[in-house]
Design a protein around this nucleic acid. Structure first.
Length: 551
RNA sequence: GCCCCCGUAGCUCAGCAGGAUAGAGCAACGGUUUCCUAAACCGUAGGUCACAUGUUCGAAUCAUGUCGGGGGCGCCA
């Protein structure tokens, strides 16, 4: 909003000076150094050449016009040709008023222009409890959903259930073995590819309590089918429960089994055949993906007649396109980037727009406890699950720690730190700022110095550097949200709110906020911290973290 | 061999659609409480932004290459 104002002022000035703009995309920045003003632009550096001027000369011409505006305390040329703006205090006041008026809607916008966005995340195999990578995906996807919604996109959350295919058969067989064990059978060698986790034993016990030995009277085929459906259903419920506990919801659960029943695999295959990019070789059906940028051709139908995982994957993505999304975001784990070349090839082959598909890769997580890396082995069934983690550090800390890092970076998760209730732990530091403000407001209310309405004359009392800096920080909030909804990086919000909380704590310890001796000044400050509280609360809400009023 | 991610303070990491003097937290050291929540604050110290070349008014940021770390490359999913 302020930025737009500056841009239009600049363009006016350019016109009135009879100058030209070669590169219209100048930057309007908030300089790190306060001496460089509140905002700064490089317009003259970018466009001096075309006007046959030196950057500083062009900047001076513009400044001559701009400094007549009332919104700026000063407009100056600096360095190699930057133009630095200092805002008039009245502008700060009007910004603060706007923040307060917007309340919990501050920062929301129509920036996304109602673009329909499909966000697919977690999509863990239904063969076991959710692990920490799924937890990271859940925190990431859910926050991105809320942020994009807040920024005017129309996002849609989807979980793809891989409930068909080979690994599901292995799941059924694993359960069968545990079930037979329960009935006294000795299993000498539990196959290495089977699922070894304790949860399979629990499922066997549960199944046994429901069915007893009835299952042995069925044919093997029927029994395995029963095992499979039972395991899938139970594990799916387990996963949903974990996600609910974590505060993560989905708009749709897409079942591969169901899609297969609807004949969507055959449909996908026939589309590819129609596009003339399949062929047979050695009893298998191949996709000529090299025609579309892949490094080698891929098998679609194995020589045993079964489809590879690629077919349902392509079929699923066809549905994503058919459902009319403008943006399709796949949040994938660290071991999936090899899929994408094949998938993209298929999308090109079928003439869908590959630019609509965006892949976000989440990287690995290493858990550390007491400085030691926690060793996990999926094979031996020794993994830390999402439930373990939540039980250990709590939802708030877990979500914050997952969001604090950019998705593409490996994440070292310090369990000890996440459990700490001190300023070392950033999530407490932020929540504490919120609680502290709540407490001050409560006290001010009791002492009857809490203002009931806004008065610009009162707000003008805010003129300390720290106060203006905080307003400036809050002023950038909508921009931060818009940018991160564009680049899909919620970690920027975590960083932002941490900074804001820090600014508040420092401000608090330096200045008395609610002081009955100075009513007007106190009221102005109470307005200021109310605004801070709102911005912190909004940020935490978007990250799925609670904002306590008392700690 | 090919592909993806990472390399910034002792540690964990921000900053990267190019901008002015590179930031924060932790750890280290030294301080702050008759005062609205000390779950806080202040101060000190700490850097060849892995390296090289290029692009330009300007590079931690972009490009190419090198080195180092992590992960991935089946008619498994």
């Amino acid at each position: 909003m302020i930025k737009n104002k500056i841009i239009s002022n600049l363009k006016e000035a350019v016109n009135s000076c009879d100058l030209e703009l070669e590169k219209a995309e100048m930057s309007i920045e908030i300089p790190h150094n306060l001496e460089h003003g509140d905002f700064s632009t490089n317009i003259a550096l970018l466009n001096a050449k075309i006007n046959n001027l030196k950057p500083r000369e062009m900047a001076e011409k513009l400044v001559a016009v701009l400094s007549k505006k009332r919104d700026y305390k000063s407009v100056e040329v600096a360095g190699p040709g930057f133009i630095n703006f200092k805002l008039a205090n009245s502008l700060y006041v009007s910004i603060l008023e706007e923040i307060l008026k917007s309340g919990m809607n501050y920062g929301s916008s129509d920036y996304g222009k109602g673009k329909k966005v499909l966000l697919e995340f977690v999509s863990a195999n239904p063969t076991g409890p959710l692990n920490v990578v799924s937890a990271r995906a859940a925190a990431f996807g859910d926050s991105l959903y809320h942020i994009m919604k807040f920024c005017g996109f129309e996002p849609f959350r989807e979980f793809y259930i891989n409930d068909a295919g080979n690994q599901v058969d292995i799941l059924a067989e694993s359960l069968e073995l545990r079930y037979r064990e329960l009935h006294g059978e000795r299993i000498d060698e539990f196959p290495p590819e089977a699922y070894h986790g304790e949860y399979i034993k629990d499922l066997a016990i549960l199944l046994n309590s429901l069915e007893g030995n009835k299952l042995f009277h069925m044919t093997e085929k029927d029994r395995l089918k029963k095992m499979r459906n039972f395991a899938l259903e139970q594990i799916h419920m387990m996963q949903m429960e974990s996600l609910t506990k974590f505060g993560v919801e989905f708009d749709n659960w897409m079942s591969e089994k169901k899609m297969r029943k609807e004949g969507i695999l055959e449909e996908a295959l026939s589309y590819l055949a129609e596009a003339k990019c399949t062929y047979e070789n050695e009893d298998a059906v191949w996709f000529a993906s090299t025609k579309f940028g892949d490094i080698k051709d891929r098998v679609l139908i194995k020589s045993d007649g079964n489809p590879t995982y690629l077919v349902p994957d392509i079929a699923y993505h066809i549905t994503k396109y058919q459902r009319g999304f403008d943006v399709i975001i796949d949040v994938l784990g660290p071991d999936h980037h090899a899929h994408v070349s094949k998938l993209e090839a298929a999308i090109k082959a079928l003439n869908y727009d590959p630019a609509k598909l965006e892949i976000v890769y989440l990287q690995h997580i290493n858990l550390f406890d007491q400085g030691e890396k926690v060793k996990m082995s999926k094979r031996a069934g020794k993994i830390v699950t999402m439930d373990d983690l939540i039980a250990e550090v709590g939802c708030d800390a877990a979500r914050y720690f997952f969001l604090d890092r950019k998705p593409s970076a490996h994440l070292n998760f310090d369990l000890e730190l996440a459990k700490k209730k001190s300023s070392e732990n950033p999530v407490y530091y932020i929540q504490y700022a919120h609680a502290r403000i709540s407490s001050i407001l409560k006290k001010a209310k009791k002492e009857k110095i809490l203002p009931t309405k806004m008065d610009p004359k009162v707000l003008k009392k805010l003129n300390k550097t720290a106060e203006l800096a905080i307003i400036k920080k809050m002023m950038s909030f909508p921009d931060v949200l818009n940018t991160l909804s564009d680049v899909r990086e919620p970690h920027r919000l975590a960083n932002y709110v941490f900074d804001l909380a820090g600014m508040f704590h420092k401000y608090y310890s330096k200045y008395k906020i609610a002081d009955p001796k100075h009513i007007e000044l106190s009221q102005a400050r109470l307005h200021l911290i109310t605004a801070i509280k709102n911005v912190i609360a909004i940020s935490l809400q978007l990250m799925g973290i609670s904002a306590p009023t008392k700690m």
